[in-house]
């Protein structure tokens, strides 16, 4: 039974890859020249007026964000509906498991105080990033010329930067609300000698900015690299123009795809748990 499922999964992924490859191939004038980078460039799909520096045109990333939000809303409604069912359905048990992971595995494991206050944000970030990452592994027709293609909103630096900014802002907001004026003073240990204390304070301030950048870049680079590698494997068969190479590369791409599912999960987990660590650290400062 299990082996059968696994075989079907492998067949489905291979078929999917072949479909994407064929899709790329049939497009006129592009059959031999595959531009992987183009997959990650954004062209506006719907032109909207810019407000100041903010160009609100709808592009591929925005569509993926919408899809992510829509999927989350559908799941939220399904969860609410499933709660009326007794005994619990399989779906509900799975959702409870995921909820328990966010509640006990991320927030409960890392934060000491303010768990109830910050749980919605951290769990929301976890599920948002997880859903966005996983949707990126489903081929959707938003590539160039409406081909099927892999893309994910989290493979764009400015999407992850916006998410990381939320964590950054909430961290300092939580710290200031909890510790008032002492928050910034507590960045340096009070036991340190004066000059060293100021040095530590400066280092800490810089590290706060680097936390923001690393949080954004980690997620972005992971998803981008994963998708780039997947695209390379799918496209390489076209570049080599060989059936044997296509078979080998398709087989390898199945493994990469499985690894990408794992990475999608791990990156969402790390993003959420680091957000929890930062916010928890701001709440319970060491003096």
């Amino acid at each position: 039974m299990k082996r059968k499922r696994l075989i079907w999964g492998v067949v489905a992924v291979v078929a999917l890859g072949a479909l994407v490859g064929y899709d790329l191939l049939k497009t006129p004038g592009q059959s031999e020249q595959v531009e992987i980078v183009e997959e990650f460039e954004l062209q506006p799909l719907i032109k909207l007026p810019a407000i100041g520096p903010f160009d609100l045109s709808v592009n591929k990333a925005v569509v993926y964000l919408w899809i992510t939000a829509a999927v989350l809303i559908v799941f939220a409604l399904l969860v609410r509906r499933s709660l009326r069912q007794e005994p619990p359905s399989r779906f509900r048990v799975l959702m409870e498991l995921l909820y328990a992971l966010a509640h006990d595995g991320i927030v409960g494991a890392v934060m000491k105080s303010g768990r109830a206050t910050w749980f919605p944000y951290i769990a929301g970030a976890f599920f948002f990033v997880l859903t966005a990452n996983l949707i990126g592994l489903i081929p959707l027709p938003f590539a160039h010329h409406h081909q099927l293609g892999f893309y994910t909103a989290t493979a764009n630096l400015y999407v992850t930067l916006a998410l990381a900014l939320c964590t950054f802002v909430f961290t300092h907001f939580a710290g200031l609300r909890q510790n008032r004026g002492r928050y910034f003073i507590n960045w340096a240990p009070s036991s340190a000698p004066p000059v060293l204390k100021q040095l530590i304070w400066v280092i800490h301030s810089v590290s706060e900015v680097f936390r923001l950048v690393s949080l954004a870049v980690r997620l972005f680079a992971n998803m981008l690299a994963g998708h780039a590698i997947l695209a390379v494997f799918f496209a390489m068969a076209l570049i080599f123009q060989s059936v044997l190479a296509a078979l080998v590369l398709q087989g390898a791409s199945v493994l990469i795809y499985m690894f990408e599912i794992f990475v999608a999960f791990i990156q969402a987990f790390i993003f959420a748990i680091l957000s929890a660590v930062y916010i928890g650290g701001a709440l319970d400062q060491e003096h």
Binding site: V110, S214, V217, A221, I266, F269, I270, I273, L274
Partner: peptide, 16 residues
């Protein structure tokens, strides 16, 4: 849990 936090922080260096 702590291992994953460590992985996240370490891996960021390669991603830079």
């Amino acid at each position: 849990t702590n291992m994953f936090i460590g992985i996240g922080v370490t891996e960021a260096v390669a991603l830079y």
